[in-house]
């Protein structure tokens, strides 16, 4: 049985690279990404699963990394904003002014990126449901909606 007793060495795959890390079994994925891997793109916003600034992809699905143990990530493929390779949604966010302070941006990008991959042609209600997982306090959300739609409509290369 896979088990971690006390501080343990594990391997996790982040942005297609394997990292060997010494962790506590109680460590939170968000903290590990930021403090140990220096991947500070995922942000703490509430540490309670309410705001979405810490969203990363786990095997392609959006997950709030503040409510995931690092131990749970073993054997999974984690993608953070640093792992987006010129994804269309990044350009769309810039062109549509879909951020201002930029703090919620990584989380929104990850949700949008996952949505475009999993549901390339979603009805509006699905877009709403996915993106309601995140809070942006600067924009009106309309800009973010336009950005994801330009990507889904293939209007961005």
């Amino acid at each position: 049985m896979f088990c971690l007793k006390g501080k343990s060495l594990i391997t996790i795959n982040v942005n297609e690279e394997d990292y060997e890390l010494l962790i506590r079994p109680s460590d939170i994925l968000l903290d590990t990404l930021r403090n140990q891997l220096g991947l500070t793109g995922a942000k703490p916003g509430c540490n309670n699963g309410d705001c979405g600034t810490c969203t990363v992809l786990v095997n392609g699905w959006p997950v709030k990394s503040c409510l995931m143990l690092t131990a749970e990530a073993v054997g999974k493929k984690i993608t953070t904003v640093e792992g987006l390779k010129a994804a269309p949604i990044q350009k769309a966010f810039i062109e549509q002014f879909a951020f201002q302070c930029g703090y919620c941006t990584s989380g929104f990008l990850m949700v949008c990126h996952a949505l475009a991959g999993i549901h390339p042609d979603p009805p509006d209600i699905v877009i709403d449901e996915w993106l309601q997982s995140n809070i942006c306090r600067c924009t009106s959300y309309e800009e973010i909606g336009t950005a994801i739609r330009t990507v889904l409509d293939g209007k961005i290369e």
Binding site: M1, F2, C3, L4, K5, G6, R24, P25, S26, I28, D31, N47, L69, A71
Partner: peptide
């Protein structure tokens, strides 16, 4: 961040889980 320590077990079968418990 969780302010205490615990161990993590990931059983592959029901029996492993209940025995571990």
């Amino acid at each position: 961040m969780i302010p205490f320590e615990f161990d993590y077990y990931k059983p592959a079968t029901i029996q492993e889980a209940t025995e571990a418990y």
